[in-house]
């Protein structure tokens, strides 16, 4: 186990390093720069800005300086949002995205797992068919449609929910609904098929034959085994929801990291691009790493090498 963890840690660091290096050279290869605008700034002002942020140095030197700085925990200043440091922006905005994300993960699990079970237990009945239809729609409909429709009906038409920002609990309803819609329906389908699989196992029949009540056999035996694929899905889903969705943040004006990630690229804010990329890469690698460890804990049959 220790050897495995060491190996995985080494691979994780290497992955982040490769991602950072590739991003650095790719973003510099793309045309444009942080100080391009409809109205050109004077060559002197541009030169002064580039000198201030070290953009006038050869690219490889910039790369080495950047690596040296991040090893000291210095992610540099944002090139566009003057006066703000990249790390401060990430640390202010990530918690906002993460909060919406965590609530969405919880909603997805709390709704998805039971509904999936209900569908499996009632296989072939109307309730099962209805759940399957909704779940299929949920997977097929993109999040911006869910956002826009919920905003239109609950915000503009019915005036039940506010549409801008994240001030009260009411503000969370629509973003969380939009963000959790897809994962919830995905979990429903996952849970249903895995539950059906488990319900057909010999040990379930044995339990029934031994006179174990239906509730106990379902909750104690079936659910425990059926939930494993959901845990597998939890890893990528957490990474996806925690880091914020560009679309949902834009539509509901949520000050999260998802929007920052996209706008840093269109703004050619090199420092922000690097900072957010390294942060997200680290988060992804860390979550995948944790999920692998959790597997081992949940299912001792899994052998980590």
């Amino acid at each position: 186990m220790t050897k495995y963890i060491c190996k995985r840690l080494f691979m994780a660091v290497l992955t982040v390093f490769v991602v950072a290096t590739l991003t650095f050279f790719l973003m510099n290869a793309v045309p444009g720069g942080p100080y391009e605008a409809e109205k050109s700034i004077s060559p002197q002002a541009k030169a002064a800005l580039e000198a201030k942020f070290g953009l006038d140095k050869p690219l490889f030197e910039q790369y080495l300086t950047y690596l040296k700085n991040i090893l000291h925990g210095d992610f540099g200043p944002s090139l566009k949002q003057r006066g703000r440091n990249v790390i401060d922006i990430i640390l202010t905005k990530f918690p906002v995205s993460a909060k919406v994300g965590i609530i969405s993960v919880m909603v997805s699990l709390l709704v998805g797992v039971p509904v999936g079970c209900i569908a499996a237990v009632n296989r072939g009945k109307i309730s099962d068919s209805a759940i399957i239809v909704i779940a299929t729609v949920g997977i097929a409909v993109p999040s911006f449609v869910v956002c826009s429709l919920s905003m239109y009906f609950f915000g503009v038409k019915l005036r039940w929910l506010p549409t801008v920002g994240l001030t009260t609990w009411k503000h969370y309803v629509m973003p969380v609904f939009s963000l959790s819609f897809y994962p919830t329906t995905y979990i429903v389908r996952l849970m249903r098929s895995s539950m059906l699989d488990v319900l057909g196992q010999d040990y379930m029949r044995t339990a029934k034959a031994k006179g174990v009540s239906r509730a106990v056999s379902l909750f104690k035996h079936a659910l425990r085994n059926a939930v494993l694929p959901v845990v597998t899905y939890l890893g990528p889903m957490m990474a996806y929801t925690l880091t914020g969705s560009f679309i949902i943040e834009k539509v509901f004006t949520i000050p999260g990291l998802g929007g920052e990630f996209v706008s840093s690229i269109t703004n050619r804010d090199y420092m922000m691009i690097m900072g957010t990329t390294i942060f997200l890469a680290t988060l992804m690698v860390a979550i995948n790493f944790l999920v692998d460890i959790v597997y081992k804990i949940i299912d001792p049959r899994i052998n980590l090498k």
């Binding site: 919880m106 425990r224 939930v227 845990v231």
Partner: peptide, 24 residues
């Protein structure tokens, strides 16, 4: 399921720790 409940509790706890956006 037993494993899932502590996980949910952990998520809930994380959610409490994270700062709220104030205003109004």
């Amino acid at each position: 399921m037993k494993k899932l409940i502590p996980m949910l509790a952990l998520l809930l706890a994380l959610c409490m720790i994270l700062p709220a956006c104030g205003g109004g």
